[in-house]
Amino acid sequence: MAKVADNINPLIYEKRSEREVTSTDRDEDVADDFDEREIFDMIRNINDPEHPLTLEDLRVVEEGNIIINNKENSVHVRFTPTIPHCSMATLIGLSIRVQLLRALPSRFKVTVTVSEGSHASEHAVNKQLADKERVAAALENNNLVQIINQCISTALAG
C-alpha cells in the first residue's frame, strides 16, 4: 500500500479561464512583454505529486504570488502548500523551478520560495530551493527526475 497522502481531502478551487487572445496578441508589430499571467500559465497545470489535481486547483500557485521584472530579468514565484506540514513542499518547489528553467529564456533569474507563514519549515525549504548546487544534485537523481517529469508532463496537455 502506498504512503497515505498528507492532506487526504484537499479543498479544490475554481480554475481560471484560458487567457483570451486579444487583437494586440495577433498584431505582428507589437512586442509582448512577459507578464505574471504568462508565468502563471506555465506552472498552473503542474500536477500535485499526491493528487490527480493541478497546482491551480489546489491554489498552491496564484497569479498574485508571482512577480516579474522584465528590465531586471527576474522572476519570483511564491507558492503556498495546502497544509503547513506538507512533506511535498520541496518537491513542489523543485517542480516549479525545473519547469521555469525549461520554459523561460535563460536571461531570467528565477527564485522560488514558500509563501511567508504557510509552512512549518519554511526557512529550510527556501534554503534548499535557492541552493543551485542542491538543485543540480537533485536533478542527477533518476527517481526524483522521474517524479518531477511526471508532475510536469501534464502541464503540456493544457
Binding site: 525549461r102 522521474q146 517524479i147 517529469n149 511526471q150 508532463s153
Partner: peptide, 13 residues
Amino acid sequence: RTRWYLIGAPGEA
C-alpha cells in the same frame, strides 16, 4: 521545448 526535455527521460509516459 518542455516536451523535448522529456524525450528518453525518466517519467516520460
